[in-house]
């Protein structure tokens, strides 16, 4: 075919790449209630985290054939569900307690930025990429998660629907997990509540966005979103004034990585199960996925095709 002489569009199709580490290690989440216990809770968390951080580095080295793996660490602060205190109070305490345990936080991230940052609705844009795994019998016309705000890993029990008749137990049918191994573990996750500007995203949905961000797979019109912002040492009085992804360590390995590992108390297990169910049903930018595959192959690092399988967890005892 001959090349077209006339072009109307600027080249919108180009997808930019992001630098990648081998592993992005999340050293913890910080919620208002954690900080309410002052430094004691943080101290206990980092003491628990220390040995696992070392273990992750050792494990990552296995995948690089002995070469020193690039591991970046990050920490998530919840300023979305219950904004608390201020960066000026929290950040020095956080850095101090991590250092006390011999750990270093490379990147500090604000959770509200995963919902919306700089006027860009990141969570909403990820929601637009949900392509639900259809339970057998789906011909594409059932209400989509984008309308209901609920996402399941299989077929719901018809009896739990709005038309269920509680007086007719014989009409009950069990739910079914589509990828079940003989027996189902059915999960139905709430992605958000509220409508329009009043929509509040669930912790599970934002955690799925968080995984995609750390895996370097989010783009907006081909451009990477939420690039790390170097820290100049100043700390504002409110969280909104702080960049969403703040690079605390100037020598840190790249923020995004081939794989993620999250170090969390076991109370997060249900949320992270939901995160896996969400990740399995998001169609990520094909070009971004391709870039990551090419780069990892060039480094001799094996990566699973499934995005959900790139996320790993260490659950230590705790609420």
């Amino acid at each position: 075919m001959t090349e077209a002489v006339f072009r109307e569009f600027p080249d919108q199709s180009r997808t930019h790449s992001v630098p990648l580490s081998h592993v992005s290690l999340e050293m913890g989440h910080l919620y208002a209630e954690d900080f309410a216990h002052e430094a004691a809770r943080l101290r206990a968390h980092f003491a628990e985290a220390g040995p696992w951080v070392d273990a992750v580095a050792v494990s990552a080295a296995r995948a690089t054939g002995g070469r020193r793996p690039r591991v970046s660490t990050c920490f998530l602060v919840d300023d979305y569900f219950a904004p608390f205190s201020s960066p000026a109070d929290v950040v020095p305490a956080l850095i101090g307690e991590a250092e006390r345990a011999g750990l270093r936080i490379d990147y500090l991230v604000r959770e509200s930025g995963l919902a919306e940052a700089d006027g860009f609705p990141l969570a909403r844009s990820v929601a637009g990429r949900l392509v639900e795994s259809p339970p057998p019998g789906s011909n594409g016309v059932r209400p989509a998660a984008a309308e209901t705000g609920w996402l399941a890993n299989g077929r719901r029990s018809p009896a739990s629907g709005p038309h269920a008749d509680p007086s007719a137990p014989s009409g009950w049918h069990p739910p079914h997990e589509t990828a079940a191994r003989r027996h189902s573990v059915f999960l139905d996750a709430e992605l958000w509540d509220g409508q329009g500007a009043g929509r509040t995203f669930s912790c599970a949905f934002l955690a799925a966005v968080w995984q995609l961000l750390r895996l370097g797979l989010l783009r907006h019109h081909g451009l990477p979103v939420l690039r790390p912002h170097p820290w100049d040492g100043s700390l504002p009085g409110t969280w909104e004034e702080l960049p969403v992804v703040l690079q605390l360590n100037p020598k840190a390995a790249p923020f995004a990585a081939y794989r993620t590992c999250s170090l969390l108390p076991s109370g997060y297990l249900p949320v992270e199960h939901a995160v896996q169910v969400i990740l399995e049903q998001i169609q990520v930018d094909a070009e971004a996925l391709h870039q990551v595959a090419e780069r990892s192959a060039a480094e001799g690092v094996h990566l699973p095709d499934s995005v959900a399988e790139r996320a790993s967890y260490i659950f230590y005892p705790g609420p």
Binding site: F6, E8, F9, V131, E132, S133, P134, P135, P136, G137, S138, N139, G140, A144, Q283
Partner: peptide
């Protein structure tokens, strides 16, 4: 969005999962 030779706009494609 294209203006030439006529006004035309095309959405990004959206996949819908089916098993039937």
């Amino acid at each position: 969005v294209s203006a030439r030779p006529n006004a035309h706009a095309l959405s990004p494609p959206r996949p819908v999962g089916v098993d039937c």
